[in-house]
Design a protein around this nucleic acid. Structure first.
Lengths: 140, 140
DNA sequence: ATACAACTTTGTAATGATTACAATTTCATA
DNA sequence: TATGAAATTGTAATCATTACAAAGTTGTAT
């Protein structure tokens, strides 16, 4: 996704494509690592020395509000963000902390009593040990 | 679930059944409202005037550690707790804030690439508008 | 080009849930 | 009843996030 495409994508979602916003969105698209605010801040502030953390917060809140990114609350004490807004699951390894994407098999996810509700967001979170950490420390 | 049963249940999970712990667990069993710390504190401190919030935090952390209750992070800025540790989903209405239980239909919840992982926890969160709020304010 | 209004960005201070920690109290047992 | 371990308490610290007001930037009409 190049700059022109990003610019267009933001405008499609009713977000004015300022330089900072483009950079934040670009980070999210190029680093599929479900970052928190600090990860984005530390990376972008090397390019934009005057960058403020508040701008990252403002930008991400705007993106979430406009449906450009989704907010992941799989880690108890921090918000993480994902440019992939399609329905998929997340797995967080409690040893290395890495968050993996999980792709749903089929589209079967049905509940007995969800008829009356209007569902706007779905979050599928799993926690445990990832393959790497199982191999390195099989007992924990 | 009476006091003797609660006492026994705590002991089964390697938790010494102090008076406070029994009261906290009893609250969770009798109020299936997925409370946060403050809801439990406000309720119990009428019975136990000397109760400290820290005790609630300590107790809930112990319960989670010992597998007696599960920690729900569906609300961004606060932890909520559930005495039902079986696999089920949660729906949070963004208008009234209430959290509903959802029972999985079948046990079909499969992912493409979860083979290598050891899953210890599953969290299925959904957000939107509940039936009541849809009826009362159909447009929001 | 200029001025103006609207919007964006910044930095500091406030908020609020949770945790750290040390002191006090309670409990179980000899 | 004495003693040590465990539970409880209260205050202070932590830390991610938000509030807010000032400063900077952009686009547009004149």
């Amino acid at each position: 996704m190049n700059i022109a495409q990003i610019r267009n994508h933001l405008e499609t979602h009713d977000v004015k494509p300022s330089h900072h916003r483009i950079k934040v969105y670009q980070y999210l698209v190029e680093n599929r690592n479900h970052p928190n605010v600090d990860m984005i801040y530390r990376e972008l502030s090397t390019e934009i020395p005057t960058l403020s953390r508040t701008t990252i917060y403002n930008t991400l809140n705007l993106f979430v509000e406009k449906g450009l990114v989704s907010l992941i609350t799989i880690a108890e004490n921090e918000m993480r963000y994902d440019a992939d807004t399609s329905l998929h699951g997340h797995f967080r390894c409690h040893r290395c902390g890495k968050i993996y994407d999980l792709r749903l098999k089929g589209s079967a996810l049905e509940f007995e009593n969800m008829d009356n509700f209007r569902v706007d967001e779905s979050h599928l979170y799993f926690k445990g040990l990832c393959g790497n950490c199982l191999a390195e420390a099989g007992d924990k």
